[in-house]
Design a protein around this nucleic acid. Sequence first.
DNA 1: CTTGACTCTATAGTTGCTACAGGGTTTTAA
DNA 2: TTAAAACCCTGTAGCAACTATAGAGTCAAG
Lengths: 153, 153
Amino acid sequence: MRIGDLARHAQTQAETIRYYERVGLLPETARTEGNYRVYDNRHVERLSFIRYCRGLDMSLEEIRALLRFMDAPNENCAGVDAILKAHIGHVSRRVKELQSLKRRLQALRRACSAPRESRQCGILSEISASSQQPTIAPAEHVGGTHGIHGKTA
Amino acid sequence: MRIGDLARHAQTQAETIRYYERVGLLPETARTEGNYRVYDNRHVERLSFIRYCRGLDMSLEEIRALLRFMDAPNENCAGVDAILKAHIGHVSRRVKELQSLKRRLQALRRACSAPRESRQCGILSEISASSQQPTIAPAEHVGGTHGIHGKTA
DNA sequence: CTTGACTCTATAGTTGCTACAGGGTTTTAA
DNA sequence: TTAAAACCCTGTAGCAACTATAGAGTCAAG
């Protein structure tokens, strides 16, 4: 199997695969005479595992930690649960933040019911006024509302 | 007022201020003879506005658009409402995604009630099994659970 | 007149990829 | 047989929104 086949099997891009190899999530593989990477089913499984975890929004570091458990099948797996628990914590916190954010944004929006000149816009006035107050603490381990860029095809 | 004073007033770092200037959110300022940037209260207001919007998790592009309305006080402000509406949409979608994510993660966690050897870990087995299935579509305009890196002061 | 606090520019790092550029290799079709 | 198409390689730069250096200059106080 060459990199393109692996890419198709695991619904990833070849460049992502090379990237994972570079950062040590996938092992360096054997090469053909023409210097092409060669893969087998175990690579499909490992890559699919990684992609699935990414779909669960885990960071590469978290995934790396999970893979260490996969790679050491005799060790105690309590750490796996710990990783998941921590990750759920991040997600929960982020949900709460975004919900309160949403309420604030909706309140803001009610401040300008009808279009008028910017100078009198209720929304802009509200933001301006609020921004003179001290601010709330922002997210910590948790990403913004806006994209990380991968369509993660 | 020099950059450090502005930073204190708006609870930002000096480097962030220089960054905003570079990307055009803050105007280039006058300089002292020693080449130090000079600011006044209008800069405090503008920067506070930006930081407040960042606290609302708006992207710099969205903020740039809002600032254009501030800078053109005679124009119709309907666009302001549109920006907010769209942003609320992003946030809502992200909340829903994260909530379903959380449920999936919690289900996963129930798959391994007691610590044992990694080889038999219910969580790892579950992920491995699931990852052989086709995946769900991921986020689109919306960031990961994990940090964009700014502690944002 | 030197120490310390402040400022300047320029560049690299963070995350998780994506997208080239500028080559080489294999496969396919004329 | 050969030439084009399709694939692969390495290396580097780009995205968001900063942060964090390095290496320099400026300015006030002791």
